[in-house]
Simulated assay, not measured.
Amino acid sequence: MAIRPALPTESTVREWDDDADPSGQTFSKVQFIDADLTEVANRGGVFEECTFRGVRFNASTHTEAAFVNCTFVRCSLFDTAFTRCKFVGTAFDDCTYNLMKVTGGDWSFTALPGADLKGTEWTGVKLREADLTGIKAAKAVLRDLDLSGASLQRADFSGADLRGSDLSQLDPLTVTLRDARIDVTQAMVVAASLGLDVRP
């Protein structure tokens, strides 16, 4: 699925120094190509309107960092952990997310159309008006998410744990929910969206 074009950049980084630490630094309009950020520990680093192409983030950790209006293309996010990070307006295209964990933070207006999020863990994340069209989130943990205004058409939530998440935008006729785990309040929301008369 197509995403918006990457924003223009002003400089390019092709190799990441093993000793480099992005913590506390700000990168603006930088294009990172095939850089290896494996096992990087990023605390508070800020990336604004940057593009990452073929970058490896494997086993890296990012705490209270920001990736605002960035673009990720064919990046590997294997076993990557994001804690209380800001991803507002960022787009992902053809990336891999195996074992990725996201805890807290603001991912509003993020574009993840068609992303294979199977087995990933998302807890307490704000995903307002995010484009999650066609995501494959089978057996993913998607707990306590703010999905208000999010696009969820054709999403596959088979066996996913959705408890505590806002499902008000979910149309059960356009998504796959087989064996998904939801709570009683969510069950009432889903039933109401099907036109059922829900009464105590």
Rank of each mutant, 00 (worst) to 15 (best):
T63P: 01
D116W: 01
V73E: 10
D146L: 15
L127V: 03
V55N: 11
R154C: 06
S76M: 07
S148G: 14
A150Q: 04
G164H: 07
D146Q: 15
V55D: 09
L162V: 04
V102H: 02
L152A: 03
T96W: 00
F92V: 06
Q153R: 14
V189G: 00
T133W: 09
F82M: 01
A111C: 08
K101H: 09
L132H: 12
E121Y: 03
L167Y: 06
S60R: 10
D79W: 07
G134Y: 09
T110Y: 03
L142M: 15
L132V: 07
T174L: 10
A187F: 07
G89V: 06
T110Q: 05
A187Y: 05
R84T: 15
G54I: 03
A137Y: 04
F109I: 01
L132Y: 10
A115P: 08
L147Q: 05
G159T: 07
D156E: 10
C75G: 02
V189D: 05
N98I: 10
T174G: 03
A81Q: 15
D144I: 12
L170S: 04
F87D: 02
F57P: 01
L152N: 09
R128L: 12
K101L: 10
K126H: 12
D156N: 15
D171E: 07
K101E: 13
F82H: 01
E129T: 13
D131T: 11
V88N: 08
A180R: 08
D93G: 00
G114Y: 06
L127H: 02
T83W: 09
A65F: 10
A65G: 14
W107A: 12
E121G: 05
L170F: 07
R181T: 15
G114V: 11
F109A: 10
T174C: 07
T176A: 11
T174W: 01
S168I: 11
A65H: 06
N58E: 12
L117A: 02
Q153A: 14
L167Q: 01
L99S: 13
L145I: 13
R56D: 14
G89R: 09
V175I: 07
P172D: 05
D116A: 09
A150I: 02
L167W: 04
D179V: 03
V125Y: 04
V88R: 15
A59T: 08
S76A: 12
I182G: 06
D171I: 05
M100G: 06
G134H: 08
G149I: 13
C95M: 07
D93C: 02
G105E: 07
L117W: 05
D161S: 11
D156C: 12
R56E: 09
W107T: 00
G119V: 00
W122S: 00
I135Q: 00
P113Y: 00
V68R: 12
A65N: 06
F157H: 14
D106H: 04
D171V: 03
A111Q: 15
C95A: 08
T123H: 12
G114Q: 07
